[in-house]
Design a protein around this nucleic acid. Structure first.
Lengths: 222, 222
DNA sequence: ATATTTTTTTAGGTAAACCAAAATTATTTT
DNA sequence: AAAATAATTTTGGTTTACCTAAAAAAATAT
């Protein structure tokens, strides 16, 4: 069984994320940007990953993960998100503090560790940002959610996740009481700047910018 | 602030352990053996660690840690042992399974993580093998313990730790019911092979070899 | 005190993971 | 369809952390 380095794991995760979002092969430059490295370094690594049959790579055509590569990437995301749950639920970190630590912890190797951690945490299906956690077989939980910006006036939804994971956005949400699970009703949409007047379940009313409404996911309630 | 690689951290820990046990500067060969590498590689690394002022190195004279190096080594041991407590107390691993995982986890960087983990675990002073855990300021807890082999016939002690940390020994102890905190009374010492006849607090009597009695620590009870 | 053995260092080399600059290929514009 | 631009790869280099074999120093034996 071949071993995979931390650097290789980071490439697999980046390729997974980019090709998933773009719906096509990940470009060298996109990977370089995601990993804060140069295109030359990426080409270097792609050759090695192709050699290990973790990616399907054709020069100048971008890359896709092979089933083996996708399995590894999925498992890395599983580990990252389980550790995030641990950091928030057990150690008391806030959701804007856990990314860098989880980025390190996801590279710890040990199948038994992951499964025991999962049990210890009560087999959570979503991480502290509302992102789904693949199960031990790599299966994803799908959930019907839409951006708050897509919710019609008069409709209510429950906050289920974020698109922007930056600490600045997460801290803003904390400040506004917009936490996962909170109910929110769209009262009015201002055509001028696409801002929304919303009401929390406790009756508090606020105006949220388009930028906020485009980065917050809600599940509509009936 | 300079960064320290995982390889460098492993050298610091090895130097700490060897120089502490031997009571003198750690020899190149001893470090090579401890890290399963070659003397040439060790010399290589010693130059780099000396450059970073983490060790006091004189060619052909062995190495000692500087205060900065000792601080780092102590903190690594703190992290290693806290993670071992987590793995045993929270995730349900047994004491013979946790070393390799803790060996990875000790290299996770994050002061807040360590302090929160320490709190979460109830600020334990000893790890699952009875080894002391340095506190956040790097202070060690000392404990009066001696090898079971040094306990006179007729005396009773409580098991406080192990010298040999190998899974084989730990599993043997489990099998014999010789867990941390268990009481044990030496009934008789056989001069021929230095084996001991002992009695557990539940009345069970056993004979333990010299090898066992030289690898098990007890705290004498009055 | 010299010879032998052991330990340590040096010399020269490797692979992984990065880089800048130059060359090549693909894409877009005209 | 050519020219210009953008994306990608190649070339030649770096550092880290290893290695083997040879040389040098220290320790031990005679």
């Amino acid at each position: 069984m071949q071993t995979i380095s931390t650097a290789e794991e980071n490439y697999l995760k980046a390729i997974f994320t980019i090709s998933e979002k773009e719906g096509k092969a990940a470009a060298t430059n996109a990977i370089a940007t995601a990993l804060s490295t140069t295109a030359a370094s990426v080409t270097d690594m792609l050759k090695r990953l192709a050699e290990k049959n973790l990616i399907a790579y054709e020069k100048y055509r971008g890359v896709l993960l092979t089933p083996a590569g996708e399995r590894l990437a999925t498992f890395l995301i599983r580990k990252h998100r389980l550790w995030e749950v641990f950091l928030v639920e057990k150690l008391g970190f806030s959701w804007d503090e856990v990314h860098d630590l989880a980025e390190q912890l996801e590279h710890i190797h040990g199948d038994a560790l992951v499964e025991r951690l999962d049990d210890f945490l009560g087999r959570p299906r979503f991480d502290p940002h509302g992102d789904p956690i693949p199960d031990a077989e790599g299966r994803w939980t799908y959930r019907s959610q839409l951006l708050l910006g897509a919710l019609d006036a008069g409709k209510r939804g429950v906050i289920t996740g974020v698109e922007d994971h930056s600490p600045a956005f997460l801290q803003y949400l904390d400040h506004m009481g917009l936490v996962l699970g909170a109910g929110i009703t769209v009262l009015e949409r201002f055509a001028y700047d696409q801002s929304l007047r919303v009401r929390a379940d406790d009756g508090t009313e606020r105006v949220l910018s388009e930028k906020v409404s485009q980065n917050l996911y809600v599940k509509p309630t009936v």
